[in-house]
Write a protein that binds this DNA or RNA. Structure first.
Lengths: 252, 252
DNA sequence: CTACACCCTTACGTTACGTCAATGTCAACA
DNA sequence: TGTTGACATTGACGTAACGTAAGGGTGTAG
């Protein structure tokens, strides 16, 4: 049995444009060309198309599929496993996104009227999330998926109940920081305790922790005047002091 | 504090091209233009960018973000909940993909040499998966996510152990079908039992079941000669008989 | 004065097709 | 036999969110 573009497209559930495109990029050429220039597909092409659709369903790019199917020394199992890993990473990312979104929804539903300070809290969290986004991939590469998976799970299980704990931690941090600031030494025990409290506080918002990301955030505290203003509201210079303490803390 | 493109891009962790693009599509315009034509951003723009990045992190399209942020009567909470649903659907799809891929990997690792019949089994499965792909969205719309979620979970938990059960089911189907074929009546009890067995068999491969999809598959059994050949290998006409039986079965 | 690190606009490339537009082919029916 | 309607062809532009030059002006530090 021979198939024209439309017949094959109906059989396979794709558009005829798709078949022409596949011909164009050389991933699926028709068996022969009719005297009128029509594309005619045979059994082998149907099978090949099924293969292509199978991979495409797994969200492999056509380019990748092409090299998969043309290379003679093709280790199908390995390719599948590699793709499997990618999908797992995607799911972890997606879980993280969903958890984040749920937190945000819970926050907006919990209280519709937010004070200025609370808005700022939200902003801080957003900055933190943003930072996580920047460092996330790097961390995943370094520490593997298992750990990221676990910590994402932790974040995901966090609900509004934890909000109090976080606020308490933030208060503790503020006190510790103001006391440590009086010592003037960011390497002092008090200052390092403050840095540790900051890490604990951070761990509530972050899906995972790394010294590098923590240090990056600390630097941002001084670079961005909003953070500086927030931390300096009691004592000017506190933001820079906290940054120095964290930089020391994360180097150990 | 004013920011040039690069400063802002570094602060926010995006490229300067991104900022120019956001200016171009009107989603984030600079506060003012320098005498040299430089884009200068202020505090409000930083905040707005943070908002944009927040939504973008949730994989909302820029177009959508734009309408979200420009519309005065913007129900942020509702938008978030809607997006949450979308992400959940995506995760279900992704879970299905992963489960499918794991099955495939298990199959290829289990036996590297496949008999012709086994290849055909694989092909059948692929066709089934393909069909699922075609009907999947429709089904999701009709029956909601909960059910899809549950059945996906079921498929996901399926391992190689089930393979024997599936093979047994296929054998039972073959026997029932050949006996029913002798009655000549696709509405007969035997034929309907065969259709039911077929549904059970299908349920092992499908992430979810619907009468429509089952009927669609039945029609394909006759339209595609490979299926016809498979089912007619014992008795010619069996494929058409099975199709009729399933069409009756799915109409009840 | 000259590097060098910025900034600008313009414009093409990317992926996997969708969607016309203009035109040719085939089978059936009056 | 002519016409109609469903098919086929190529060509070309559009999509989303930028990446990546090319070609040229600006600002500042040594």
């Amino acid at each position: 049995m021979e198939y024209t573009v439309q017949k094959l497209s109906r059989l396979a559930g794709v558009s005829s444009r798709t078949l022409r495109y596949y011909d164009e990029i050389g991933i699926l050429k028709p068996a022969r060309i009719n005297s009128s220039g029509y594309r005619m597909y045979g059994q082998a092409e149907v099978d090949r198309l099924q293969q292509i659709l199978f991979y495409r369903q797994l969200e492999v790019s056509l380019d990748h599929i092409k090299s998969l199917m043309t290379s003679s020394s093709y280790d199908g199992a390995r390719a599948l496993r590699e793709h499997h890993e990618k999908l797992i990473v995607r799911r972890v990312q997606l879980d993280s996104l969903i958890a984040n979104l749920e937190k945000t929804i819970a926050a907006t539903e919990g209280k519709l009227t937010m004070t200025n300070a609370e808005k700022f809290e939200g902003f801080k969290q957003r900055m933190v999330d943003d930072n996580e986004r920047k460092y996330g991939e790097e961390i995943r590469e370094k520490y593997g998926n298992d750990r990221v998976d676990k910590s994402n799970q932790k974040v995901k299980n966090m609900t509004q109940e934890d909000h109090e704990s976080v606020t308490k931690l933030a208060d503790q941090l503020e006190i510790a920081l103001s006391e440590a600031f009086l010592t003037g030494d960011p390497a002092s025990k008090l200052a390092q305790q403050a840095a540790d409290l900051h890490k604990q506080w951070l761990s509530y918002y972050w899906s995972d922790y790394s010294k590098e990301a923590h240090a990056g955030l600390a630097r941002m505290y001084v670079e961005d005047e909003r953070f500086t203003a927030y931390y300096d509201k009691v004592q000017p210079g506190t933001a820079a002091f906290l940054r120095d303490a964290i930089l020391i803390y994360t180097k150990e």
